[in-house]
Amino acid sequence: MDGVDERAGRCAGRLRLVPWAEGDLWLLRRTNSAEMTAHLGGPETEEQLAARHLRYTGLRTGRKYRVTSADGTETFGSIGFWRRTWQDAEVWETGWAVLPEFQGRGLAVRAARAVREEARAEGALRYLHAFPGVDHAASNAVCRGAGFTLLGQADFEYPKGHWIRSNDWRVDLERGD
């Protein structure tokens, strides 16, 4: 980490994790294309986006972030971590979206490493999981690059009512791997 600004979040190299705010609904709309949601069940309605935005602004456990340049002048995408029950245990789950014009630059890997540290600092749960579809090469590469361990495949529901075959990637936050 390059340092911490309590108002702006933690830095990671040339990017910054900025806590999700009221004005960030535009980013959900921007990532709601067929291309960006192909592995997530497709685009959402405006009502679904608004409800998701409210969930993000009201998270009581976990965090959602806008991923920006270190100086805050560019927004690259979003990332977060939140509680979920997985295989009868409470774990953190993470997920991310990088805007198309910034993909392929390693930003998602750096953001995933930074969010690992945020989840570790939260201290409440031992494991952080990611569940990209088995055929989503880019997101699986992010998990690998961010130091997650592949545990195997699993059927995973996202969004509600839409089942996909996913890889179950995990980081042990107590051990750092």
Rank of each mutant, 00 (worst) to 15 (best):
L99D: 10
L128F: 01
V98W: 01
N140G: 13
L125D: 06
W96G: 00
R144D: 13
V109F: 02
L128G: 00
N140S: 13
H136A: 02
V134I: 14
L151M: 12
N140Y: 08
S139A: 14
V109R: 10
G123H: 09
R120P: 05
G147C: 00
V134N: 07
D155E: 15
G104W: 07
F148L: 06
E122M: 08
F131M: 01
A146V: 02
A112M: 04
R126S: 04
Q153I: 07
G147K: 03
N140D: 11
S139F: 06
L150A: 14
G123M: 11
S139K: 07
V109M: 05
A130F: 01
G104I: 13
L128E: 01
G106C: 06
A114P: 08
R116D: 02
A108V: 03
V98I: 15
L151S: 08
H129G: 06
R113A: 09
E122G: 08
A138I: 07
D155K: 11
L150H: 11
D135M: 12
L125C: 02
T149G: 10
Q153T: 15
G152F: 05
V98M: 03
L107S: 03
G145A: 08
L99T: 13
A124E: 15
A124D: 11
R116S: 02
L99Y: 09
G104P: 07
H136F: 04
L128Q: 02
A138M: 11
R126N: 09
E118W: 04
W96K: 00
L128R: 02
H136N: 15
R126I: 00
G152N: 10
Y127Q: 06
A141F: 01
D155N: 10
G104E: 09
E122S: 13
A112C: 06
V109Q: 06
R113W: 10
V109Y: 05
A97H: 07
A121E: 14
C143R: 02
A114T: 06
L150S: 13
Q153N: 13
G106N: 09
R120Y: 07
F148V: 02
V142C: 01
